[in-house]
Amino acid sequence: MSEGPRGHLVFACAGSLYAVPAERASEVVNLPALTRVPGAAPHLLGVFAHRGEVLPVIDLTRLIGKPVEERFKRVVVVRVARGAMAFTATRVIGVNPIPGALPRLGETGALAFMSGPATVPAGECAAIDPEGLLEYLSRGR
């Protein structure tokens, strides 16, 4: 994998900044009413139907253990080879270059699939590895 800067879509979620590779961010949509899923982990807020497919919505704050009671208005839809998911967002910042070689934010859990901090004009953000995170979450984590 190249370690040069890659364009990332940067977005805010409850006071923290996150980034996903721009080529993986397929769209940003207003958060519709969600359908709860039986047996789902707390960070999975629910699902919604979008363009004929069912998208799971991941609350990033709960995922990394920072429960914040905030009403999210939008989601960032991320698509990788294995499937799609949507991340909660309070604000979309824009596309910024982020270096490829950043340290992981954790050794275990979801933070093992985030790296940074990366400095962007809006502040410091965590760069999400969507392929790795989807694989991790698919294992029921």
Binding site: A33, T35, R36, V37, P38, G39, A40, L44, V47, F48, A49, E53, V54, L55, P56, R82, G83, A84, M85, L134, L137, S138, G140
Partner: peptide, 26 residues
Amino acid sequence: PVPSLLTGVADGALTGFVELLGALWP
């Protein structure tokens, strides 16, 4: 179909979703 992220959730009880009455039902 069940999104790949939800495969195996609820011990495999979730088999898909149906759209009825203006809502999505597991």
